[in-house]
Design a protein around this nucleic acid. Structure first.
Length: 426
RNA sequence: GGAGAAUUGGCCGAGUGGCUUAAGGCGCACGCUUGGAAAGCGUGUAUACCUCAAAAGGGUAUCGAGGGUUCGAAUCCCUCAUUCUCCGCCA
């Protein structure tokens, strides 16, 4: 959520930057509308505060009148207060209404794209920030996609997942389950080495938390909702982990705050269909290790680069072909200012699969979270929040299985062997 | 799930309708004192918003949250949350 003060001071610059996104005329108009509503709010508050001050001072007088036994004066003063309060009540209703409309207006405004964000509307317009320099792996003609390999070596049972729950809930078994656990441990250990504190958060969150990181109201349909208790299954660890700092005031010396968490992620993926959803490419439940950083605004882009290097390092250790995309305005998430996606090449499908997304939200999340720090000037300012996947498992497994298949079986990358306890799946 | 008790500022803690501008203490900051420190003394020490060209100043709201009663609420009433104790259930 953007701050009204920013809309006021940087209105033209924001509208200009918005042109890189798919914003509508209505959204642009909303900027002026919110400012106008805020002007109204101020006028109403000024009037109402003056009325309340009057009520307070008259009430004090009434106390004195009673003490002195001046009952008639007290009675007429009471009448006066009643009149003032009647007017105040009207103003209070107005103010509430205006504030609701301001909040609704602000919720429709996406984050302002960073200078580096290329203009564009679709995936096609994303810029390749770093391309895979070497030749892409070529497999034998009889190379199998990962869902066939998973069945052949009894690693994942998609059918049992359907039986127990439904489509998109894979059941990992045997060495498949072990490989999954190995990757989780490997990712967590890498994050630990990079200085992230490990968190094991709740997997269900309340409405305030879903609202804090912006899942509500924007992406309501994407989350599973446990209606009896009004709790949401997390779509990413970002939600519980970032909400650790909701309504928190930090000291500038606390930065950077670096947190990592493994959690299963639950996504309804409403509206997806076709070959994209085959196998592990798109599922309702998958495992992911997330990294989150809270940082001083002056340093958040240094931190952003550090997070990119962290993700890149993991992919290199896994020996997977990858490329990094700088998302264009149209593909940029609602809350993000700058996002780089990591894709790995899945050689049998001959597809690039998104496995990580690293974003700087600047103050967009912290404004809604009320996540602030006490600055050098003694005043409170909004912190910057960033996060990234490091990494999302399901698609990494898909690429590993496909790329590493040989006539003897599927070889396990060197770094994972001490975690899996086996070198090859045969 | 049931019963009882509690929730006040950075922390402890007083406060049962106007004398609260939330006492007092601790902590913190600055000053005085000192050779230096401690002690002592003094001053200051929440947040958000409104007003003001700015600063100073003034105003409003906030005593777990939200409603209500009242001219006036930390104080009375209602709903909810959290914590503690006991009972029930449970890995």
């Amino acid at each position: 959520m953007l701050q009204i003060s920013r809309l006021r001071t940087q209105k033209e610059a924001i509208i200009d930057a918005y042109k890189k996104r798919n914003v509508t005329e209505a959204q642009i108009a909303e900027i002026s509308n919110v400012i106008k509503l805020d002007d109204e709010r101020k006028a109403v508050q000024t009037e109402n505060d003056a009325l309340l001050a009057k009520v307070n001072s008259i009430s004090k007088e009434i106390g004195d009148f009673f003490k002195n036994g001046e009952k008639e004066k007290a009675a007429s003063a009471k009448e006066e207060v009643a009149k003032v309060k009647e007017r105040s009540k009207v103003l209070e209703t107005q103010m509430k209404d205006i504030q609701d409309r301001i909040f609704e207006g602000l919720l429709t405004l996406p984050n302002v794209p960073h200078n580096l964000v290329p203009a564009g509307n679709t995936e096609e317009d994303n810029e390749v920030y770093k391309a895979w320099g070497k030749e892409l792996p070529k497999l034998a003609d009889d190379a199998k996609p990962h869902w066939e390999l998973a069945e052949k070596y009894t690693l994942i049972d998609f059918k049992l997942g359907v039986k127990i729950t439904g489509a998109g809930f894979p059941l990992y078994r045997g060495r498949g389950a072990k490989l999954e656990r190995a990757l989780i441990n490997f990712f967590l250990d890498e994050a630990g080495k990079a200085g992230y504190e490990e968190i094991m958060p709740p997997l269900l969150v309340n409405e305030d938390s879903a609202r804090g990181t912006g899942q509500l109201p924007d992406k309501e349909g994407q989350m599973y909702h446990a209606t009896v208790d009004d709790l949401y299954l997390i779509p990413t660890a970002e939600v519980p982990v970032t909400n650790m700092y909701r309504d928190v005031i930090l000291n500038a010396s606390d930065f950077p705050i670096k947190l990592t968490a493994y959690t299963p992620c639950f996504r309804r993926e409403a509206g997806s269909y076709g070959s994209d959803v085959k196998g592990l490419n798109r599922v309702h439940q998958f495992n992911k290790v997330e990294v989150v950083q809270l940082q001083h605004p002056d340093k958040s882009y240094e931190t952003f680069d550090e997070m990119l290097l962290h993700v890149e390092g993991i992919l290199q250790k896994l020996e997977l072909p990858y490329r990094i995309l700088r998302l264009c305005g149209g593909d940029l998430g609602f809350a993000s200012s700058l996002t780089y996606d990591f894709e790995v090449y899945s050689a049998a499908q001959k597809k690039w699969l998104e496995v990580s997304s690293v974003s700087n939200f600047e103050t967009f999340q912290s404004n809604r979270l009320k996540l602030r720090y006490k600055g050098e000037d003694g005043k409170k300012h909004l912190a910057h929040s960033l996060n990234g996947s490091a990494l999302a498992l399901a698609r990494i497994v898909a690429a590993l299985l496909e790329n590493n298949q040989t006539s003897d079986g599927i070889t396990i990358p060197e770094v994972l062997r001490k975690y899996t306890g086996f070198d090859i799946i045969d």
